[in-house]
Design a protein around this nucleic acid. Sequence first.
DNA 1: TTGAAAGCGTTACCAC
DNA 2: GTGGTAACGCTTTCAA
Lengths: 344, 344
Amino acid sequence: MASRKSLRTTLSDVARAAGVSVMTVSNVVRGKFVLPQNKARVEEAITRLNYRPNLSARSLRTSEARSMGIVIADSDPAFLIDPFISRLVSGLSNYLSSIDYTLDIQGVVPERFATAGILRKDRNDALCAILCGPVELRRQHLEFLRKLGQPVVLFQEVFKSPSPDVALIRQDDFGGGKLIGQLLLKHKVRRVVFLRPMLDWSAVEQREKGIRSICAAALPGIKVTTIPAASESFEDVYSTVQKFLSRGVPDAIVAATDSMGVAALKACESMGVEVPKRLIVTGFNGFDLWRYTRPTLTTVMSPAYEMGRRAGNMLIQRLRDGRFAQRNVAFPVTLSLADSTGRH
Amino acid sequence: MASRKSLRTTLSDVARAAGVSVMTVSNVVRGKFVLPQNKARVEEAITRLNYRPNLSARSLRTSEARSMGIVIADSDPAFLIDPFISRLVSGLSNYLSSIDYTLDIQGVVPERFATAGILRKDRNDALCAILCGPVELRRQHLEFLRKLGQPVVLFQEVFKSPSPDVALIRQDDFGGGKLIGQLLLKHKVRRVVFLRPMLDWSAVEQREKGIRSICAAALPGIKVTTIPAASESFEDVYSTVQKFLSRGVPDAIVAATDSMGVAALKACESMGVEVPKRLIVTGFNGFDLWRYTRPTLTTVMSPAYEMGRRAGNMLIQRLRDGRFAQRNVAFPVTLSLADSTGRH
DNA sequence: TTGAAAGCGTTACCAC
DNA sequence: GTGGTAACGCTTTCAA
């Protein structure tokens, strides 16, 4: 029956089957007004023929894809397991779904950022990005994004927006670091270890700066030592902390992330160092993990899901209005006290 | 200079700038052989004009999108935080990226599955899906997927493939349940609680069947009681277990997932019920969580990341060869012993 | 309200 | 090896 070479049903297949023109079918599909009698026949034909609109053709014609992309630079192949990222992407995806937009996703190791297919081809109306690596590399990548000439939201960086097409959304990691710092003050610690991954990440830098800004101003002085673990993996962090503890026990271990905080807790346990009695431990960017440990982990809560929604919303407004209403947005974070810093 | 109304650079913009035909530019872009002198001029123009190929136009012409979609039915809006799903999607995404394919992602509550935009429009060459909800609903959704007339990989279901276009990939949850069951035998338990979420999920059903198959055959008999928590959330599971324990302590709590296992551990802790001394606890579908708790959690390890890669690979082969080589694939799982079931 | 035709950016095809 | 042309499926435009 179908004499077309294409295997897929098209508008004109439906039009022929329903005895109307393609425009009538198109109008039905897009919810425009069509006489009820025609509409019914078209809908019947659509169902019978299993018609689905070809978005490539629609996008080509309308020059809007109703789709956004997100590119995530991460050294871990399983880039979505990071709880911040999984929440951010969930929020973005759900927001976009709610307005009938699609989300394209791609993870990429930082060294190969600029080769990501999602950036080299034009398939999405706008892009989101999360960078990592040394600050100069991140700056290059931002420049690469700027040159795309497409609306972009960049997460978690403190760069100034370099173009009207680039907006930045971050949580207040510096402020979060200060909250941890103030907690350290309250506990009258003297020697603090800031435990971070080797790989640079803007948020980690900000957290460290926030903590140090408080500790530097403290009287009596608080000495902050930064210890880098080879990676964020449990094994690397665990062994790094064990090695450090074997040479002396500080008053506090401030971990750059919750998963590192957990590994630190476990390392303390293995060395017989009691938390919070002998030293206190904190995490960062907490979601549920804090409550799984014993003792439970004091951390700073992130609004990641909401940040994802917001990014989608800002990009939609940018596409509609031709400009971003704001190009720098910072979300507040909150301190979440638990047993690893002792009962207040 | 650019007299076109479209804002984006096109092939013919580049062709004009380089003084060649569009076909030459197209050939350069696609890596076909072009005389070095022309190639150089074209590449210069591409860089200068910031040209990126329009994938909608390419897809329309070639009728291949080089893109796949995944739709995830989940009652939790943050559908990506589930560690199984985040690994599965990471594996799929990375595999697709490596062959220059894109991944579209959409989460949807099970009641609205068939309304998901990713299913109602034709943008991807193939689809992956994860279902949840009562088995009849899942069967309907599978039928919906079958009718799309597109290659589909469905995860974690034990349905028979209903069409040459549908392949099923799952882990051996029944076998995993048997591993847990055998462990229970070894510990000579008599009263077992299977702790599961209210929401149906194929994998949970299989796990329960596997456990019960072993327990039913045991001598002396092992009594298995199923306790549903309102949801998988920490609070719901925690309070469900507390309530249950207040009426008596079984010999084992077998949780349907690791996060439920952790909540059970914490509920035991809160009630002063020692694990593994007084009762043993197990999780399921473990990744890193098991090592965060005290005691660490015995669980069954899932090959989720590898399953995602495999799905991508099977779909690519299906697109290339016109048929699936296999339509039912089961990945083995492994038991991971830890402190919550005591030292052997 | 409906229909006919043009054209979105690209690639397949076929001349040269 | 390169270029002209048609066509992919859809929506915009304009006429009826």
